[in-house]
């Protein structure tokens, strides 16, 4: 039992990050509302940031700001993943901005953000009825 607990404590980050990745992926793949897709994308990327940053942790290390204890690398956590993720977050915001701009443009042209409706209209046919009942709306 204790062995299992130790395994969980060493690995639970991966488990939780995986759950978040799955939720984000579900949002991107299964939702038809395009805004929900962008929200899923943001959840997915934040889960990846979490994975990266947790990987930078070193037991006993403090924040990578050199203080009076000197420059011994063992005293601080790994700063390189911090840099990578810091820039990735900013680029992620840029990506969300462009995605939302495209969505607004789509809305201006088609009057809806339902992916199926837009795809059907672009293909030149009416919306296919997938056997959805009216109470399925939403």
């Amino acid at each position: 039992m204790t062995a299992l607990l130790e395994l969980f404590l060493a690995r639970y980050i991966y488990l939780f990050v995986l759950v978040l990745l799955a939720i984000g992926l579900y949002g991107v793949l299964a939702k038809t509302d395009l805004v929900k897709k962008v929200i899923g994308l943001t959840i997915f990327s934040t889960a990846i940031y979490l994975f990266f940053i947790e990987g930078s942790l070193q037991e006993g290390g403090t924040a990578p700001v050199i203080d009076e204890r000197g420059s011994d690398p063992a005293l601080y956590v790994d700063p390189l993943p911090h840099l990578l993720i810091l820039t990735a977050i900013v680029v992620g915001v840029g990506v969300v901005g462009v995605a939302l701009a495209l969505l607004v443009r789509l809305y201006r042209t088609h009057g809806t953000l339902d992916e199926d409706v837009i795809a059907a209209r672009l293909a030149g046919r009416e919306v296919a009825d997938d056997g959805d009942t009216p109470e399925d709306r939403g």
């Binding site: 929200i39 992620g92 969300v96 709306r137």
Partner: peptide
Amino acid sequence: LGAGLTGVLFIGAILATSRHSTAKRNL
């Protein structure tokens, strides 16, 4: 940026489009 500005951009886009998610479920 992640919590503040992303939210602001989303709200801007939602004000420019529609507030309620009206997409049909695609089972």
